[in-house]
């Protein structure tokens, strides 16, 4: 595997967990799929639709999101929003993320926690 492919694979693994947190954070306010992708992109997280839509559907199956079909701008759209269980999961994931981030930060700066 060429070095670039190694890096791409590592980047993908690094993003995988972060994307879930980003989606849950963004869905604290209601979005439909296309708008969610654009909102995440506006925040600097470019995620392709072929990955995002199955992901939000899986999160909904797990009970972390709720959804409903509604008409907006003369189009039927499926709107997603975080559920109570999703908020609880998000809180724990953010705690974990902060801890990891702090660890990486201390490692990068050569300090101990």
């Amino acid at each position: 595997m060429p070095p670039d492919e190694h890096l791409d694979k590592m980047r993908l693994e690094l993003r995988r967990g972060v994307v879930i947190i980003a989606v849950l954070l963004q869905l604290r306010t209601e979005h439909y799929g296309y708008a969610l992708r654009q909102a995440l992109e506006a925040h600097g997280l470019d995620i392709d639709e072929g990955t995002l839509y199955p992901l939000i559907r899986r999160l909904e199956t797990q009970g972390l999101l709720t959804s409903e079909w509604r008409e907006e701008d003369r189009r039927n759209k499926r709107f997603y929003v975080i559920s109570a269980e999703g908020r609880s999961h998000l809180k724990q994931l953010l705690t974990e993320f902060d801890s990891l981030f702090a660890t990486i930060d201390t490692l990068r700066n050569g300090r101990t926690r």
């Binding site: 439909y32 799929g33 296309y34 639709e49 079909w69 189009r75």
Partner: peptide, 17 residues
């Protein structure tokens, strides 16, 4: 399971795109 729902969502997203 959920096939029609998924297709409707993909269609809506593609049309908007």
């Amino acid at each position: 399971e959920g096939r029609d729902d998924i297709l409707a969502e993909l269609r809506q997203s593609l049309e908007e795109g």
